[in-house]
Amino acid sequence: MERHTLAIHVNDQPNVLTRVAILFGQRNFNIDSITVGATEEPGLSRMIITTNGDEKQLDQLIKQVSKLIDVISVDHLSKDPMVAREIALIRVQAAPAVRAEINGIVEPFRASIIDIGPESLIIQVTGDVGKVDALVALLQPYGIQELTRTGTVAMSRCLNTSLIYA
């Protein structure tokens, strides 16, 4: 089971997220993460979906998603070099005594402490999934009270990716 990142270009219509999400469920595909937002073109949104499956499943998934009327194109981003990032906010249990120690973990990750409470910190980290996972693992021993992740946004490194038009 390989991990894949897809960029789905859609009409900015009500329910378009539901249509795509329902299709994934209907065809028995998993969604690991999903992000939606505006694009450079007015009226169009781009969804970044990370999913997993073998080559045949992915081929079928791309073809089925392409059939949705509101889908303009599906781009298999992870097929070629790409950049992918997500943001995570992590609330860690942190009495004053361990704050310096935690800061020592945060710094090499280029993460930042964005809120300090009497017994906890909120850390913001940006990076690919692996980097965020690694920081979360390192902070685990201090006690993670709350964790929220945006899901991946991604873009190809060059523009000659395989666009599949719906």
Binding site: P14, N15, T18, R19, I22, L23, Q26, L68, I69
Partner: peptide, 13 residues
């Protein structure tokens, strides 16, 4: 429209 999303080619509200 929600109910019929998986069983229509497309739908409109």
């Amino acid at each position: 429209t929600g109910i019929t999303m998986p069983i229509t080619k497309h739908n409109y509200f």
